[in-house]
């Protein structure tokens, strides 16, 4: 990650369940170690469970501003986005991380901000790939999802992140086994793989790795 120069706006999109939220939060924390002002916005209006807001305390402690629907994690299943999100793409006074909803359906909401992002032209549109997800199990299927998302939001991808994992049983070998598939997706799309993201508990000796600190969940059983 040391050689990576961040753009003003970084967007994470991809197949739902590919790990966009975890990466967006961890990327924002990494970004905060490089630059002064970082804001993160949750643009997911499709899935009401497991949101950026789950990490509100971590982000707050790090001094990162979280922009999230006031209805996230509540009983209101309302597809609304807060007005502050416009500030991120119009005022341009801080670095911005945008956590986009999954698939093309989740990416439609990004469309309303796309003209400002394209006009400023200082963004990285990142496709998050997990080749252990059944509907994006190889480069060809992942490419199909990429094109669907681009069609929905009006912004073309500029980079790929390989976040292949099997949840809490992932081993370093499982990650390494997907590197060639990520390269294949890179060849097919003509886009660089800017980093591989890996749970910090897993030791992968590869270049360009973003270590992820993941939240523990109350239902993760810790057998002795």
């Amino acid at each position: 990650m040391d050689n990576y120069t961040p753009k003003r706006v970084t967007l994470f999109a991809g197949h739902y369940g590919s790990g966009k939220t975890n990466i967006a939060v961890n990327f924002a924390l990494w970004l905060k170690s490089k630059v002064l002002n970082v804001k993160i916005a949750d643009l997911d209006i499709v899935n009401p469970y497991f949101r950026t807001k789950d990490s509100a305390r971590v982000l707050d402690n790090a001094g990162i501003t979280l922009i999230s629907s006031k209805y996230a994690n509540t009983n209101v299943d309302l597809p609304a986005l807060p007005e502050q999100t416009y500030g991120l793409v119009q005022r341009r006074d801080s670095y911005a991380v945008l956590d986009v909803g999954g698939d093309d359906r989740g990416a439609y909401a990004l469309g309303r901000y796309a003209p400002y992002i394209l006009e400023e032209n200082d963004y990285e549109m990142v496709f998050v790939a997990n080749f252990y997800r059944p509907l994006t199990a190889n480069a060809e299927e992942a490419l199909e999802v990429m094109r669907e998302i681009e069609g929905a939001c009006g912004i073309k991808f500029t980079a790929i992140v390989n976040n292949s994992n099997l949840g809490n049983i992932t081993t370093a070998d499982d990650v390494r086994a997907t590197l060639s598939e990520a390269e294949k997706l890179s060849d097919l799309s003509g886009l660089p793989v800017i980093f591989t993201s890996v749970d910090e508990k897993i030791n992968v000796n590869e270049n360009n790795v973003l270590k992820l600190t993941l939240q523990e969940k109350y239902f993760d059983i810790k057998e002795n």
């Binding site: 369940g17 997990n130 080749f131 252990y132 997800r133 994992n165 099997l166 949840g167 049983i169 997907t178």
Partner: peptide
């Protein structure tokens, strides 16, 4: 790659 996949319960 393992035979396992990462899925949501609904999927």
């Amino acid at each position: 790659m393992k035979d396992k996949v990462l899925m949501k319960g609904n999927e």
